[in-house]
Simulated assay, not measured.
Amino acid sequence: MEQYRIAEIIAESIITDELAQVIFLKGPLARQETSYTVTLYVMVSEQQFAGFQERRNLYLSAYGSLVYQAYTDDLAIGIYENGLRIDLFSLKTGPYFPDDDILIIYDPQDHLANYQKFSSSFEPQEIGALLNSFCIKARDYQEAYQKKDEVLSFYLSCILLEGYAILKRIQFDPELAKLGLKYYFRKIDREEKLKFQEILRKLNLESSAEAVKRMFLGLDQFIGNLPIAIAEHINFEFYFDTKKRIMSIV
């Protein structure tokens, strides 16, 4: 895959300069999944950090000509003529707690030898927070809808779709729930897939309220079968009051 070739060429260029202490891929490519974006992290010592930042253009250009490039304090973005993209992140050496899967390319001093593999599942308290956030956004949706603010209410319904999808994924694919909408249909059963597709069909300016109502109907099944460890973090009163408000929309 050409994306790995980009990572290899840029990593070799960085290693040659002897500025990096750790280099690793993060995200889909670390999981051997397809992605047009190469997300590459470089850990650099405090003393070498400024020198590394100054040479980021050379590293990005090592693979080929750039049609676009942009730089911030910790990120260099490059897009190549073949459409592939590199996001080159720079970190100062220190403890690192990954929020996604990583694949170590270079770590001669074993800085990441004891890193904890990223978990794609949610903790019980996180699930409670997700449901609360969904309900708060649903109340925002209700207000926008009743004010006949079609654009805002449609926008909020799309945000609700993502929250709904994550909560439902906790039900049928808990180990990968943090992936959100990525590869959403891989493990979903036929009945749930049909329900989700129906919500998608209703998600437009004219029928967004129907889509949001169906989300709550789907969540009823979710919260009705929660284990005690998760249920004790759920604010059922807040959820059902929010559902009542949404179902009252006419």
Rank of each mutant, 00 (worst) to 15 (best):
K187L: 11
M43N: 00
L161V: 09
L40Q: 01
A20R: 03
K148F: 12
S121G: 09
K147C: 07
S90K: 09
Q116E: 14
A7D: 00
Y155D: 10
E232T: 10
V42Y: 00
N132F: 13
S157Y: 04
Y239P: 04
Y155K: 12
K117W: 08
N57Q: 13
Q3K: 02
S248C: 11
Q146H: 09
I86P: 01
L131A: 04
F122R: 00
Y80N: 03
H233W: 10
K117H: 14
L130T: 00
I102Y: 08
L160N: 07
K195L: 11
L40F: 05
A129K: 09
S207M: 10
F172W: 06
I127H: 00
E18D: 15
E33H: 10
Y96W: 11
D220I: 01
Y184N: 02
C158D: 11
A138L: 01
A211R: 01
F52Q: 01
E237W: 07
D17E: 13
P227N: 05
F97C: 09
L19E: 06
N114M: 09
M43T: 05
E12G: 12
L219E: 01
G218W: 07
A144R: 10
Y145R: 14
F118Y: 15
E175A: 15
P124V: 06
S248A: 15
N235W: 06
F49K: 06
E123V: 07
F238N: 04
F134M: 09
Q21N: 15
L91V: 06
I136G: 06
V44D: 03
I246M: 02
P227K: 05
A231Y: 02
F89P: 03
I159V: 15
M43P: 02
R139C: 10
A231D: 07
R169Y: 04
L58V: 10
N82M: 02
E198R: 14
E198A: 13
L179R: 15
I230C: 05
Y239E: 04
E126R: 11
R214D: 15
L66F: 06
I104C: 05
L112R: 01
I136E: 08
P95F: 12
A229N: 10
K244R: 15
Q197I: 09
S248L: 15
E237T: 15
D140C: 08
L25H: 03
E18T: 11
F196D: 03
D173N: 14
E143P: 03
P124H: 01
Q125K: 12
C135G: 01
N204D: 12
L226K: 06
N57P: 06
L66G: 02
K168M: 14
G27Q: 07
I6W: 01
Q69W: 00
G51Y: 08
R186S: 10
S61Q: 10
E162F: 12
Y96S: 01
I166N: 05
F154Q: 12
E150P: 04
A165Q: 09
Y155P: 03
F222G: 05
E54S: 13
R169S: 05
L181T: 12
T34G: 09
L226A: 06
